[in-house]
Nucleic acid binder design. Structure first.
Length: 300
DNA sequence: CTCCAGGAGAGGG
DNA sequence: CCCTCTCATGGA
């Protein structure tokens, strides 16, 4: 059992950090979080500024949770209005992780058009099927499969993981990654915009997944992923527009560029805090239903 | 049954 | 640029 004492300048909230939907391999049970990162099973528990953990080193904890970043300064820089201020108040200590690049890439190929419990289940099945077994005193776990292991999976095994149409995408990407182990280094050397374009050359990676990967694995905090929840929040609270039916690529870019200009270079942090309070938004936006009194007419 | 969920690809106007 | 269809899955 190791212990890390956080200073007041290094706020961390394990709950918000590990349950906000950026990483999919953590589970909470009886005040302990257990997760698989790389080929390690990490357990951790927080008691105020005391962080207890097993299964890894202090250096890796500091890196994974990005404890070196000045979170109060980042949060101050994005606190531009009452809505984001409220999100910061309620989710303070949420930190954007530095995830292993391969895991993050594959995870967000599998994340399209799903909810978080389904994504976690999908990845757990994939790991059980093709990931290296990790035996701990508390039970056996499976590492996230390597690109080689995914590329080698047969059709039956892939189908058993319930990946749906995503199976072909992840397999094709795994073959490319396995043949190009330096892919992450190349991405890291590019500008955010260039890296974004290169990531979208993988089949199954579009604008949203590319932004998630840049934010959660490459520390590009200016990346601003726009999913259906963030779109709803941004249109309602910032752009004052009705939600029309289709979500076009140009609308994605409009939201993304507004957010980058409004929140600044840590817009990705603002995104994650807004995502964290997404359940507060009415599920039906203003434009649905003929009885919505305050909607503006939408030209068709 | 319909609708939705951390979308993306393909095709057509 | 725009739109629509389709992909596969499970929960509500």
């Amino acid at each position: 059992m190791h212990e890390l004492v956080l200073s007041t300048g290094e706020p961390l909230n394990l709950y918000h950090t590990l349950s906000c939907g950026q990483a999919f391999r953590w589970a909470y049970d009886k005040s302990w979080w257990t997760g698989v990162v790389g080929d390690r099973v990490i357990r951790c528990r927080q008691d105020g500024c005391h962080l207890f953990y097993t299964g890894t080193t202090e250096a890796e904890i500091l890196d994974y949770f990005a404890i070196d970043l000045d979170l109060p300064k980042i949060l101050a820089s994005i606190e531009k209005d009452r809505l984001i201020a409220d999100a910061i108040l309620r989710c303070r200590g949420l930190r954007i992780l530095r995830q292993p690049a391969d895991e993050c890439l594959f995870s967000y190929i599998l994340a399209t058009c799903s909810n978080i419990p389904m994504i976690k289940r999908r990845i757990a099945l994939l790991a059980a099927c093709a990931g290296k077994e990790i035996v701990t005193p508390d039970g056996a776990y499976h590492a996230f499969p390597t690109a080689e292991a995914i590329a080698a999976m047969d059709e039956d095994c892939l189908r058993g993981c319930k990946l749906g149409y995503r199976a072909a995408y992840i397999k094709e990407t795994a073959e490319i990654i396995a043949a190009n182990p330096g892919w992450a280094g190349r991405i890291a050397s590019l500008s955010t915009d260039e890296a974004r374009d290169v990531l979208q050359e993988f089949r199954g990676i579009g604008p949203k997944a590319a932004d998630c990967i840049l934010l959660f694995a490459f520390a590009r905090y200016d990346a601003f992923p726009v999913d259906v929840w963030i779109r709803r929040i941004m249109l309602r609270h910032y752009l004052h527009e009705n939600e029309v039916r289709s979500f076009s690529p140009s609308e994605y870019d409009r939201i993304r560029h507004f957010a980058r200009g409004y929140f600044g270079p840590y817009a990705g942090y603002a995104q994650e805090y807004l995502y964290c309070i997404r359940a507060d938004e009415p599920s039906l936006p203003t434009c649905r239903g003929p009885s919505s009194a305050d909607r503006r007419p939408v030209p068709r």
